[in-house]
Design a protein around this nucleic acid. Sequence first.
DNA 1: GTCTATACAATGATAGAC
DNA 2: GTCTATCATTGTATAGAC
Lengths: 211, 211
Amino acid sequence: METPGISAPSVPAATEQDEHVRTRLLNAAVRVFDRKGYAAASVREVAEMAGVTKPAVYYHFGSKEGLLLAILHQAERQLSHTLEQADLRPGSARERIVALCEDVYALFGQHVPLARVAHAVFLGPPDGAPPFDVTVFEVKFRRSIERMVEAGIASGEFLPVATEDVALGVMAMLELCNERQLHPAFEPVGPGVVRRLISLFFDGVMNAPRG
Amino acid sequence: METPGISAPSVPAATEQDEHVRTRLLNAAVRVFDRKGYAAASVREVAEMAGVTKPAVYYHFGSKEGLLLAILHQAERQLSHTLEQADLRPGSARERIVALCEDVYALFGQHVPLARVAHAVFLGPPDGAPPFDVTVFEVKFRRSIERMVEAGIASGEFLPVATEDVALGVMAMLELCNERQLHPAFEPVGPGVVRRLISLFFDGVMNAPRG
DNA sequence: GTCTATACAATGATAGAC
DNA sequence: GTCTATCATTGTATAGAC
């Protein structure tokens, strides 16, 4: 499937087959941690799936923990990026909140194994994973929603309800959708569920007559 | 703290110190699985915390998996019991739904370590735990809510909205509250959150003027 | 029923050659 | 940077005494 261009040996092509070992190890670790869980996964299996041997893992990441931490930092960067983009979006408060949730939902859907690993660390046993502040994204996300809600209240778009409860309700809807998107035992929910559920929730918040 | 009654040696007192080995092992396993995670927990640690030795575990439960399955069946029985009670409760649809969610929330709060272990198995890696149909309770719970919603629609208490979406929204609120009750990184939410959040959600569903 | 002692496999991690 | 070979530890599970 590759276009065999004129050979340029001084510029090694970055094909998927010839990725850097670091990247191959990260991708393999996500797959193995996702299937076996971090504690039950073995460094040997990760190395084999990446096509290298065990010492390569310890050379690049120092330990099994270092491998997981690299994965988590990668996830954190992607989430923070999505969050920062949403803060700059124009539109009504309601539409901005829905759009942010749809963005996060889409991001999770594009990186299901990575999201599952991060989710497992977030909810997993305290002793099972290395210390990693998993609440930083939750706090950032809640603050973003709360700012949007406050703007909506100030503009008269929302009723003067409890800002914190509205943020929790929105997060609840998004988390439910993500859970059902990530967990293999659930039948997949349609693409419009996020918008539908949050709209259902908002129709008790909007300061406007129904219809 | 025990009342030293007249000695009755033929009836051994069921003090907490003198529980049956089976029960002590179950309680210890919940604590260890909760802290370390099922995969990382060792049978030796469970046995030591129960005050017995390793072979006692294999005598009573056959294997480490059998120990976990006994724990999960115990949790399943408690949840099914709460669900069956809620189906018989009288009152309006809205109040019955809120009461059911408060019951489940209280049940989780009374058995936090057990709930965390069950939650971890539910969301954990597919290869990490033995096969156990964790969706059975989720389906039962959703059907209960859906029946209540349909009754509310039929009686005119609710607007003719999508029953499935309402059930999902209610479950989302309950799950968020339970997550924050179970996860040590979250500051505890107050006792009225379940009712408050679900009420906030319902105020967009009720077929009645606001106020 | 519960113990001591042990079999046996697998793990995370390292040393040192190349 | 990546390999081969190896170490010390820990895991589940069992055999057999009592």
